[in-house]
């Protein structure tokens, strides 16, 4: 393969040499040579095309690389095929539920009541709702009052799918329309028995 290619080029340059060595010399003779030896001179024209094509490719690749460097975020590929910064952005979201440890630092009295009762493992915000704003600024953000008629039955209304060991009541019969906290202390719900 290589050899034939070489010899092909060889002939082409040979012809060029013969063409320029004509008495008139210079461009005129080359031009005439082209028109006269049409088929062989195509080799020139085609190599020109190839260079132009190559140039287009190189320019294309350069444009691609430049655009890519510009468009692909710096952190893309830092950990894998994704934007590494995405994790920090997701982690930057504000928190709405402060967590029971935060509540307990200020409301130690409630914790004292709660910690020996049956609601010891029910966290503050499970009943009181998201209160991170209140925890940040208790003076200006007041927690909403709770309605025990709605709150308690969410967990305690009897349902066949609830575990049999979980304390359940049929609220209509059990409370006879009274709010649950007329008889039960929300933070320590067992009646009697040392107010647990």
């Amino acid at each position: 393969m290589r050899d034939t290619e070489h010899s092909g080029l060889g002939t082409a340059s040979c012809i060029q040499l013969t063409a320029t060595s004509e008495p008139e010399g210079g461009r005129a003779s080359l031009r005439r040579a082209r028109s006269s030896t049409g088929t062989t001179m195509h080799a020139f024209k085609d190599s020109g095309h190839l260079f132009r094509l190559a140039a287009v490719f190189v320019a294309g690749i350069l444009v691609f690389l430049v655009l890519r460097g510009f468009l692909v975020p710096k952190s893309f590929g830092q950990y894998g095929h994704y934007r590494g910064n995405a994790m920090a952005e997701i982690a930057a979201r504000p928190v709405n539920f402060a967590g029971h440890e935060t509540c307990e630092t200020c409301h130690a009295d409630v914790l004292d009541k709660k910690k020996d009762g049956k609601h010891a493992h029910v966290n503050c915000e499970a009943c009181h709702g998201p209160l991170a704003k209140h925890a940040d600024d208790p003076a200006s953000v007041q927690p909403p009052k709770l309605d025990t008629a709605v709150l308690c039955v969410r967990c305690h209304e009897a349902n066949a799918a609830k575990p049999k060991t979980f304390p359940q009541v049929a609220s209509a019969d059990h409370s006879t329309g009274l709010p649950c906290d007329t008889c039960h202390q929300p933070h320590s719900p067992v009646i009697g028995g040392g107010a647990k």
Binding site: N96, F97, H100, N123, E125, A126, C155, F166
Partner: peptide, 8 residues
């Protein structure tokens, strides 16, 4: 948030 608020 779900674990924080799971009562059981």
């Amino acid at each position: 948030a779900c674990c924080e608020n799971c009562p059981t």
